[in-house]
Design a binder for these strands. Structure first.
Lengths: 337, 337
DNA sequence: CTGTTAGCGCTTTCAA
DNA sequence: TTGAAAGCGCTAACAG
């Protein structure tokens, strides 16, 4: 089926090297010879085996994208940014879903290194150094996406969670809210930590001390958001606004609110991190991150590393977020303000 | 950095073959020798290079997923089904976005074959045989997803577009609609053709002749849906219902409707193919396809082919759809029934 | 301008 | 139980 360079050489009556040179334009070849080789290639439908090439060059022109769940539109969009950028430069992308499991993550990284990927884009499932070291120790460059890890000497690209959260909470404060609950992800993930920090800063600046803090940690999933919001909504007096630490949490939190018979935004406002695109009547007020650009920039950085370019020091790229105010937020109920 | 089997052999004081045998458990090795080898592997952090292995076995344990746009939640979910199924069986997945361009598609397939992927999952951008033949002629199995191609000897897995469309239109007819416009994708894609066929069958069964047909072809995108819906809405008397041939078209169509100052569903109903998940208040009535399962079944079929299992004849798997009735549809305006 | 040799990392013979 | 030789498909380096 798949013919080799030897088949082409035989058919064209030349050596394999000559065929190689024609394919790669790596040296002058007489027009007639080249013609015969091209002819043979066409007749056989020959396609070079880049595996063999990779074995020599120790370069597979393949990168890996390891993330939590490609089903989350935030990651989907990142993924698209990654693939577009990579393919522009002749790189292919392999992807894996860890579902936030560190052991899944390590398993995948192991397979990916066996496959000799040139570099890894990683949305780390935990704040430990283990996964990163595993890859870096074997000489493969890593760029972290969305999340960063303290003390790791590693490139990273993410949205500004702290500032984004700060702005969202300031917005709610300006609307008159004073009881704002943060329905958060797990404290082991930097985005959750950073968003909590931004939330805290906004409260403090507004003169609301630590006693006003209502932070609930949970999972970055819809089910997690539902459960965590339930906890937040079990405290009296009720919060007048929920700040959901990501889009999936917002989905679950909304459900929890509706089950209590409360209306959004009349009884309670919701603001979330990450957009929820693709809806007919956009409803959720969000802190949108430049997801596509995060994927793009991270890939550019990784490919630059592979090319030996860029500064030696690890880069930390933090992109600005922007708020989109929609109908899920408004002033608190009159009797609560 | 990356140590080789030779490094391990040297460190353990054995031959490379012995190391190979330890790694693959392919023959008896004395306990002491095995122990020393394992020790050396651990000390070096050795990871086998599967590229070299692939070169011999002509098996990369990698499959490719070539689709239109991973950003569409329908494809995202398929993608997730593919990856879960593939990784369960030790396969990795490469993915590529064609944006419905046949030339992009061919370019990607070429790269993928060069990379020696074992099989290809393809959402074909066109109804021609070119792409499929290109891959099959080189001995690489292909499974079509979502779309099928006439006269192609190839496996395929998809949702039942004809029946799904039939049911959606029957539902609208039962509500009392008589002027139903199909805002379709391009006539070169089987899903658009099949959905038109189901639409037609429902109208005919209801005793509405060909004169009742309002089929508008366009693109499977939001912008395309917008433009095509504009055309559908330029015809008087106005349709009382739009049947959008996919979720993105529905998004654009909805915008077109709102721009005319019409309300959904009071003035005009919308029903669409493919769900639009991840919304707080689901609104759109849809014909939902089992996207995850399409990815799963297609991958299972492909991997079975790779294992030399299954019937010789090409399989055509058609999965049932199911309607989800929500708020975007209702009876036609009283004066129009 | 073209061919020969050697080797990338691994494993399948065949020997010892 | 272990090792040596050969080769998967390709190309750099060195002839000629």
């Amino acid at each position: 089926m798949m013919s080799t360079i030897g088949d082409v050489a035989k058919r064209a009556g030349v050596s394999r090297m000559t065929v190689s040179r024609v394919i790669n334009n790596s040296s002058y070849i007489s027009p007639e010879t080249r013609e015969r080789v091209l002819q043979a290639i066409a007749e056989l439908g020959y396609i070079p085996n880049t595996l063999a090439r990779s074995l020599r060059f120790k370069q597979t022109k393949t990168i890996a994208l390891v993330l939590a769940d490609i089903t989350n539109p935030f990651f989907t969009t990142i993924t698209r940014g990654v693939e577009d950028t990579a393919s522009e430069q002749g790189f292919s992308v392999m992807f894996c879903n860890t579902d936030e499991s560190q052991s899944e993550e390590l398993g995948y990284l192991n397979v990916l290194l066996q496959r000799q990927v040139d570099g890894v884009l990683l949305v780390p499932a935990s704040h430990t150094l283990e996964s990163i070291s595993f890859v870096q120790d074997r000489g493969t460059p890593v760029v972290l996406l969305d999340r960063h890890i303290a003390n790791a000497r590693v490139d990273s690209v993410r949205g500004d969670s702290e500032q984004g959260a700060y702005e969202a909470v300031c917005y709610l404060l300006e609307l008159g809210h004073r009881r704002i609950a943060l329905v958060n992800g797990p404290p082991t993930i930097s985005t959750a930590v950073d968003r909590a920090a931004g939330y805290r800063r906004a409260l403090l600046e507004a003169g609301l001390g630590g006693s006003a803090e209502r932070i609930y940690y949970g999972e970055f999933t819809s089910e997690g958001g539902y459960r965590t919001a339930k906890r937040a909504l079990a405290v009296k007096p009720l919060p007048t606004a929920l700040f959901a630490a990501n889009n999936f949490i917002a989905l679950g939190a909304y459900q929890a609110i509706r089950e209590l018979g409360l209306r959004v935004p009349e009884d309670i406002s919701i603001v979330a991190f990450d957009d929820l695109p693709l809806t007919m009547e956009p409803f959720l007020t969000v802190v949108a991150q430049p997801a596509y650009e995060i994927g793009q920039r991270a890939t550019e950085l990784l490919l630059a590393r592979l090319a030996g370019e860029g500064p030696t020091e690890p880069q930390e790229i933090v992109l600005p977020t922007h708020m989109i105010i929609r109908r899920s937020s408004g002033p608190p109920p009159a009797d609560q303000a």
